[in-house]
Each structure stands twice: as C-alpha cells, then as structure tokens.
C-alpha cells in the first residue's frame, strides 16, 4: 500500500502547549491542504483544538517554505505549525 503519511513539526509556544515536537500523520484525501491537515490534527489533540478555539494565530510551512491555509499538502511532505515569528 502506498505511504500517504507526512511529517508534522511543532515549534515554540505551540510545541509547549501540545507537549509534542513532531509526529506522523496519514493523509486521508488527495486534496489535502494546510487547513485540512490542521483541522484533522485538532481532532487528534485537545490542546491544539483549545489553542485554535482561543484564537491563537497559527502559521505554517510546507517543505520549509512559508505556506497559507490553501497550500496543498502531499505524501512525504514536511508540514510545520508555529506561532507568528519573533526573530531579529
């Protein structure tokens, strides 16, 4: 069977809230996007669902490129979720 899993990474305050820095997730649709993956992960993690419910701003990257909710996600991708950046 074809491997449809992706690697999911969490950074900074989002990682602390989830108590998790990475996991695997198996895509359930060929039309997956950043938004559908985040929705599915929120089903899996109470802390993520609570963060979204509380209005936390979550940004994403797909394969190390900043992404939008509509960015497509395919098998083998690395998808990262994190709060707005604060470097410099």
């Amino acid at each position: 069977m074809k491997d449809v899993s992706i690697t999911v990474l969490y950074f900074a305050s989002l990682r602390d809230r989830l108590g998790l820095d990475r996991e695997r997730y198996a895509l359930t649709s060929p039309d997956a996007t950043v938004a559908t993956v985040l929705d599915a992960l929120a089903e899996r993690h109470d802390a993520l669902r609570e963060a979204i419910g509380a209005g936390a701003v979550i940004r994403a990257a797909v394969n190390q490129q900043f992404a939008t909710p509509a960015t497509p996600v395919a098998a083998g991708d690395e998808v990262a979720f994190f709060p707005p950046v604060t470097g410099g």
């Binding site: 990257a61 900043f66 990262a80 709060p83 950046v85 604060t86 470097g87 410099g88």
Partner: peptide, 12 residues
C-alpha cells in the same frame, strides 16, 4: 532587519 522579524523562522 524588518524582514528578519517577519520572514524568518525564529521565536524568542
């Protein structure tokens, strides 16, 4: 420096 603050993946 403006772009570093908004376009690079750092968190303090």
């Amino acid at each position: 420096i403006d772009w570093l603050k908004t376009r690079s993946p750092f968190w303090k």
